[in-house]
Design a protein around this nucleic acid. Structure first.
Lengths: 147, 147
DNA sequence: ATCTTTTTTAGAACCATTCTAATTTAATTA
DNA sequence: TAATTAAATTAGAATGGTTCTAAAAAAGAT
């Protein structure tokens, strides 16, 4: 459970721990769904009906700046968030947009001449394809518009 | 020049070739800037002042569906497009968001047990770091808000 | 030249995200 | 525990990217 660490870190840098933030942190803790801000908002709103979207966005931005979560550009329409900050990669279903983590390291170094003085600080591999559900169900699960 | 091929392909499937579409195709042909819809709109509007954003979006979607361009999820805020459909990867500057192509193949196969019945159809590697301009100029070129 | 179908257009609508300014609250200190 | 103060929350407005709409224009076929 990374939750406790997050809370401690929060306080250590002079940020206030509010019930709303705690709810967001709890939702994110161990979450493997790579949720969007709206996903998070919908969830925590159940417990805090007055919750504002701004709070979700602010909290996510604060967490990101502190390096406690990652912002993913996996979805063309919206940002998605990953509370797992271990470097890893993603398997993305082209049909239902679900995302599976891939905890592996690959040797993908780019030689000098190919990177033109660019300093490479990290990498992220998107594998795209079809998840087992979508591969079987010829219709079900569809959530996007590839064609 | 892939332009001619695109025009032929267009007609072959019964799509009409209009001056607006031609302008968009010409702008994309050989373009290595990974432009957004807005970038394209601004450019072609110079030549066609009545050009509508809808035309740009429609054309891009048509091209994408036909596999003539690729839609990139490189930028969290907007889609960007790549007329180069050869499989390749991208070097993304965290500071100015410029993108450099990497024409290399990497062995990134994911073993059975790691992909849980997922069928992998392709992959795309994002290398992120700092381009030479941004690395030198401590301020210039900044276009985003990493911190 | 006419006809049919597709495309273009301006603008409205929509969704994700950011901003705003007033109100509330966590944490500190007396 | 009450007062203080800096930070967080809130509803809603504003913004930016994208999609939709319905009417007008134009491409390609006959």
């Amino acid at each position: 459970m990374v939750l406790k660490k997050m809370i401690d870190r929060y306080k250590a840098i002079g940020l206030k721990m509010t019930p709303q933030r705690l709810a967001i942190l709890e939702y994110l803790d161990g979450n493997r769904e790579h949720p969007s801000a709206e996903d998070i908002y919908r969830h925590v709103k159940k417990r805090f009906p007055t919750m504002s979207r701004a709070t979700v966005y602010n909290t996510l931005e604060t967490l990101r700046k502190r390096g406690l979560i990652m912002e993913l550009s996996i979805d063309p329409m919206k940002k998605r968030y990953d509370p797992n900050i271990e470097p890893h990669h993603h398997l993305i279903c082209l049909r239902c947009r679900n995302v599976l983590d891939v905890f592996m390291e690959f040797d993908v170094s780019v030689p000098e001449e190919a990177r033109k003085d660019f300093v490479i600080l990290g990498n992220h591999i998107e594998f795209y394809g079809l998840c087992s559900k979508c591969r079987n169900a010829s219709h079900g699960e569809a959530r996007n518009k590839e064609a």
